Simulated assay, not measured.
Amino acid sequence: MADELSLIFAALADPTRRDMVARLTSADATVGQLAEPYDVSVQAISKHLKVLEEAGLVTRSRDGQRRPVHLETEVFDLMAKWIERYRRRAEARYQRLDAVLAEMTGADAAHSTDTEGAAS
């Protein structure tokens, strides 16, 4: 899983590839369609697609003369599970910190009440 995640996150480290993935969320596209908004060659886009393919983020199929690129959404499930595990750990740490702070605030409030009563 770690090696697969490393490939996925490395592939998504590039802003052009992230943008291509985002565009593929709405519909499959050809290499030419994916290349349109960029000032790079179709070959450069093909290289980006190869990285995304090796990471399992996209697949290419054949539809007559067209070779549409398809986003493999189950890869995002793998990423989400990994992220969620660490989000839960962080959330547990924050809850423990909240409890400590609440305890400290309660102790400070009790101490403050005690000293105010003694000063009167």
Rank of each mutant, 00 (worst) to 15 (best):
A55R: 02
T59S: 15
A90R: 10
L7V: 01
E36M: 01
D114L: 13
A80Y: 06
F9K: 03
L12H: 12
S46C: 00
R85F: 08
Y94I: 15
T16M: 10
M104L: 15
E91D: 12
R89W: 03
E4G: 10
L97R: 05
A90G: 03
G106I: 05
S120R: 12
I45L: 03
L5D: 02
R93L: 15
A118M: 10
A22V: 10
A109Q: 08
E91F: 10
A55N: 06
T73L: 11
T16I: 12
R67H: 08
Q65K: 04
P68E: 06
L49S: 03
L34Y: 00
V69M: 00
E53R: 14
R60G: 14
I83V: 09
E91I: 08
Q95M: 03
A22M: 07
Q43L: 14
I45Y: 01
V21G: 06
L24D: 04
A110S: 14
R18N: 11
S120V: 05
Y94H: 10
L49R: 08
T30A: 02
R60D: 10
L52Y: 00
A13S: 14
S46F: 03
F9E: 03
L12T: 07
A35Y: 01
Q95N: 12
R60P: 07
R87Y: 07
A92V: 13
R96I: 08
G32E: 14
V42T: 12
T115R: 03
I8D: 01
K50M: 09
A92M: 07
V40Y: 11
E103L: 09
A44P: 01
E91Q: 14
P15H: 06
T115W: 01
R87N: 06
A102S: 15
L34M: 09
S46G: 05
L78M: 08
H111W: 13
A90W: 09
Q33K: 12
R96H: 14
F9P: 07
D63S: 11
R62P: 02
E74C: 14
R17T: 00
S41M: 11
L49V: 02
E74R: 15
M104N: 09
E84F: 05
T30C: 03
D108V: 15
G32K: 11
D108C: 04
P68I: 08
R66T: 10
R89C: 06
Q33V: 02
D114E: 15
Q65F: 08
K50D: 11
S26D: 10
A119N: 00
M79L: 13
A80I: 07
A99P: 02
A22C: 02
